[in-house]
Each structure stands twice: as structure tokens, then as C-alpha cells.
Amino acid sequence: MHGRARYRERMRLRGVGRRYGRRGPWVLRDIDLEVPAGALLRVEGGNGSGKSTLLRLLAGLDAPTAGRITGRPRTAYVPERFPAALPFTALGYLTDIGRVHGLSRSAAAHGARVWLERFGAGEHARTPLSELSKGTSQKVAVAQGLLAAPGLLVLDEAWTGLDRASRIVLDGAVAERVAAGSTVVFVDHDPRRLAGKPDAVHRVESARLAAVGQPVADSGPRVRIEVEGPPGARLPEALPGEPDVAPAAPIGLRLTVAAAHSDALLRALLAARPAWHIRTVTPAHPVRPHANDRGEPGR
């Protein structure tokens, strides 16, 4: 059941607010946010602005005081500091967490080894967590978030404490998750982190959320994909990039999507059960031909 969380109800926050205690000030208020599959979202804001609270709400760690959050896929969360005073080895802990995510023991252990290797911490697999350096502990925290390929990955300054090489590995891992159709939401103090990659940037200010700048991916060139499904099959829900859909001649459908999402969309179509046949992939006209088909052409 693990793996890609592609075809799902879209995650939404509606009128979400959060405060601590019955009389406490609102840390966040009236947050409406769509969290599409296959999107990379950056959250900005000053210290104590409520960024972390927003990430905790997204990850399901905190329940909203007001409003509703629906459609959250299987989620992983990576904290900024992971002072893991746990009586496990790195491999043992990661295997256990993988199983909590629903992986089998062997899949969890395999994923744990793969990710420790990728972050250059393979030789620490058998080291007790309490003996790991701060940086290696953080690698375990990041591996914990990645090994079960979650549908939503929430990174609260996960890069902090990692060495340079591991930061690059994490950048790559984030891109892989997004390409596989997962949503990744992150906060990082470095404004250049994954620069140009996020589909949207949101800023938390005075307890409200505001979109910052133009989403890069959706304003770029678009690609037209003609597909044929098995007889009677319906297009899978929540496809990456939210393609515009129109009938194609003589049969099949024509999907138009931002080029940045086209790889993920093709992968999703091919991996659908039953699989869809890709007939052609061509660059779309600069003007979107079917921008209003879904009433909401990107943002």
C-alpha cells in the first residue's frame, strides 16, 4: 500500500486557525490553502511567526482549533533537531519507523540502509542513536522522512545541521518526491534553498497566510499529451500539475500541463491501474487552449 500517493482527494485547509489554550492569541487564523499532489511549497515568515505551527498542522501533529483540514495523504515529518535519546541503533529505529509507515520489515530495513548510504551514514547503521553526532542524527531524521515514500513530506528546516554534501542529497530527494507525485512543504532559513523550484511560496505574517510571487512552474511553457485509456476507464484523480482536460480526435483525451509537471504526469498515467496509453507528447501553444476547462488554471 506504500509507495506513491498519487490519485487521492486533494488536500485542503479551510478556515484553519490555531491557538494554544482557550484564551491564547491566535498563532494562525483563517488559513485557506490547497495542497496539490506533486507540488513543492515553501513557507516563509519571521521567527515566531507561526511557520512551524503551520507545518505541524499540515503534518497532522496539531489539530486545528478552528476550520478543517481534509485529504491529508500518508505523511512524514522531519524536525529541525533530532536529539534522539532513543535506545535503538540508527538502522533499528529507521526499520521501526518504516513499519509504522506500513512497510514490511524487509522493505523498511532495505529503505533504511539505502537512505543511510545516500546520506553517507551507512557505516553508522549499527551505531546507537545516543552515540551519533548532531549531524548524523539529523541524517537519521531525514532518512526517517524519506524511506517510506510518503504522499506528503513536511520539512521544518530539515537542512539545518546537515553537511554540505547531505544538503545536496536532500535537495535531490525532495525533487524525486515531487516528481513521484508527492507534495513537499518546507521551511528553511536559507532563501536560496531550492530556489526557482517551488510551485508556490507562502508567507506567514500576523497569523495570516499570503502567497508570495508567481509560481514558477505553472507560468512556464506547457506540454500537450494525448492519451488513450482502457475502454470505460476514467482519468485518475489528482494528477500531477492539474492538467486541463479536453477530448482528443478521434478518440482519447488531450491533457495540457505545465512542462515542469509533464514528467510526473506521464509517470502517473503509465503507473495507473489499468495503465493509460500515451499517444503523443507535443509542446502546447503559448496561449492555453483550454485554460478554463477546470475553472481554475493553476495560479
Binding site: R56, A59, G60, L61, T75, Y77, A84, G145
Partner: peptide
């Protein structure tokens, strides 16, 4: 569990 580890399990 330390809070950070609890959060990781709680997200899952």
C-alpha cells in the same frame, strides 16, 4: 520519547 521523535511517529 523526545518530542522530535514523537512527532516523527505521530506524522506517520
Amino acid at each position: 520519547e523526545p518530542a522530535a521523535a514523537r512527532d516523527c511517529a505521530a506524522a506517520a
